[in-house]
Computed example of a mutant assay.
Amino acid sequence: MKKFLVAFAFLVGTAATSMANTSNYYADNAAVDQVFQNAAEVSLSAYDFNAMKTENNTTTVSSEKNAVVAWALCWVVGGFGIHRHYLGTSGSMWALYTFTGCGIFGIIPTVDWFVLLIDGVVNKNIDKYVDNEKFFMWA
């Protein structure tokens, strides 16, 4: 209970001291109105949205992925499967990685890290891992 009271007192004290300096801040309404008056009006009718459509009504992103970026993402946040999203896997892969204890307690991201290091960074070929829907991307 003492720890809670000390933490609460610290938070209240921090909030009180940070609120003490708010009198120095003000909004110049005339300057804000001037910004809005000088702003350029944008119309959506100037864009050709039909040119952006593809055959199945989806937009595609360049399939060229950087192996070093995928490897670095695996190194930093591999337990959450963010590197797999970068490589173009399904939207639920983050849940599979997270809810299996960061990829079966970190084993899967560790293997992914080595695979991306060897095949991606050294051999510069990660084509078989891009848009791979398998849980084990190397299998």
Rank of each mutant, 00 (worst) to 15 (best):
F105H: 11
V111S: 00
Y26Q: 06
A70H: 08
L11S: 10
V61A: 15
D127Y: 12
G103Y: 01
T59Y: 15
F105P: 01
F105R: 06
C74P: 05
A16T: 02
M19I: 03
W75S: 01
S92R: 10
T100E: 03
N38T: 06
N57Y: 02
D127A: 14
A16S: 06
T22I: 03
N21G: 02
W75G: 00
W113R: 13
L116G: 04
S45M: 03
W113G: 14
S43T: 03
Q37A: 08
D119G: 13
V35C: 08
A39C: 11
N50F: 05
V77D: 13
I104L: 14
G79Y: 02
L117S: 07
W113F: 15
A39L: 15
S90E: 02
E55F: 07
S23M: 07
A16M: 03
L96R: 06
V122N: 13
N21T: 02
A27Q: 06
F114T: 08
M52L: 14
W75P: 00
V69Y: 05
T89E: 08
A16H: 02
Y86M: 04
L117H: 05
N24A: 07
E55W: 09
Q34P: 03
G91A: 11
S92Y: 10
D127H: 10
A20H: 09
S43G: 04
T100F: 02
T14V: 11
A31F: 04
G78P: 02
W71Y: 07
L11Y: 12
G106L: 12
F105T: 02
T110H: 12
K53G: 04
V115P: 08
I108T: 01
W113E: 10
N66H: 07
T98L: 12
T14L: 09
D119M: 14
M93T: 10
E64C: 13
L44A: 11
